[in-house]
Structure formats: structure tokens, C-alpha cells
């Protein structure tokens, strides 16, 4: 069973405490994590994805450029033949003015499997990875 998560900052974001924290959280939940660190350009993210073939891609960004950088990363991933289906989620402080539910919905519509952008982020993320793990196990068994 592939339990690998690719964890990454976005192209313009240099914050890393979010990444250090999320790596620990994912590892405690039983995932293996490749943490690409901060300021990851879309092409590098996609290259690493092709090399690692993760079960889930987690983008984390808090610098306020998430609504711009998130979709750019997703477009690059989807442009690679082998990465058309890998689930991608994004979370953090996405804009510069606090949570914006309609822009989060726009990210979902653009193809993010889930968006975690408010005070419920970590609770919802724990639920998401728990159910994601279940789906995967079910998928492997069938």
C-alpha cells in the first residue's frame, strides 16, 4: 500500500513551521512524508511527484498568495500525463484578508480535492486523511 504524502510549500512562500508541523502530524497518522520545503516552483513540484508517485499531495501556504500560487501548481501537475488523478489538497492562510469561502470553493472547482483555510483546518484535515486512508485500503483490497 502506498502511504506516501508529498508535502510542499508554494512557489512564492518561504514559511516552513507549517511544513514542519504538518510533517509530524502526517507521520503520527502513519504516513510517510517527503517534505519539499519552501518556495517550490510548479515544475519542481511536478518533477518530484513524477519521481515519488505519492498517494496524496498536500500544499501548505500562509503568505497570502495561495489563491494565485495554488492553481498554478495544480495546472502544472495536471499537465503531466502520470499525474492526472493524484489527489491534491491545499491549506493555510490563502489570502491576505482572512478566510474567503467563495474563493475556497473556486479552488475546489479548479480541482483541489479539499481546501483547509480556516480555524477548522486541522480538525477537517484529520478527518480527511482518515477517510482517505480508508478509501485507499478499500481500493487496494478490491
Amino acid at each position: 500500500m502506498n502511504n506516501l504524502v508529498l508535502l510542499s510549500g508554494t512557489a512564492s512562500d518561504s514559511h516552513t513551521w507549517n511544513l514542519v508541523y504538518l510533517q509530524l502530524l502526517l507521520e503520527e497518522t502513519g504516513y510517510r512524508v517527503v517534505n519539499l520545503g519552501a518556495c517550490v516552483p510548479p515544475a519542481l513540484l511536478a518533477d518530484e511527484c513524477e519521481a515519488e508517485q505519492p498517494a496524496l499531495v498536500v500544499l501548505s501556504t500562509v503568505n497570502g498568495h495561495g489563491y494565485q500560487d495554488g492553481p498554478r501548481a495544480l495546472v502544472e501537475l495536471r499537465s503531466r500525463p502520470g499525474l492526472a488523478a493524484v489527489p491534491v489538497v491545499i491549506g493555510g492562510k490563502l489570502g491576505i484578508g482572512g478566510p474567503e469561502p467563495d474563493r475556497a470553493d473556486a479552488l475546489r472547482a479548479a480541482g483541489f480535492a479539499e481546501v483547509f483555510d480556516d480555524d477548522t483546518a486541522i480538525t477537517r484535515f484529520r478527518e480527511f486523511i482518515a477517510s482517505h486512508a480508508l478509501c485507499r485500503t478499500a481500493g487496494t483490497a478490491s
Partner: peptide, 18 residues
């Protein structure tokens, strides 16, 4: 990060920058 193209795009689109 030296991505002046993204900065110019944001200015053109009126996207908010930090």
C-alpha cells in the same frame, strides 16, 4: 523570490499582494 512576472501579472489582474 525574483518572480517579477508573477508580480506584474498580479498588478495587471488587480490581484492582492502581500
Amino acid at each position: 523570490v525574483g518572480d517579477h512576472r508573477a508580480a506584474l501579472t498580479a498588478l495587471r489582474d488587480g490581484a492582492r499582494l502581500n
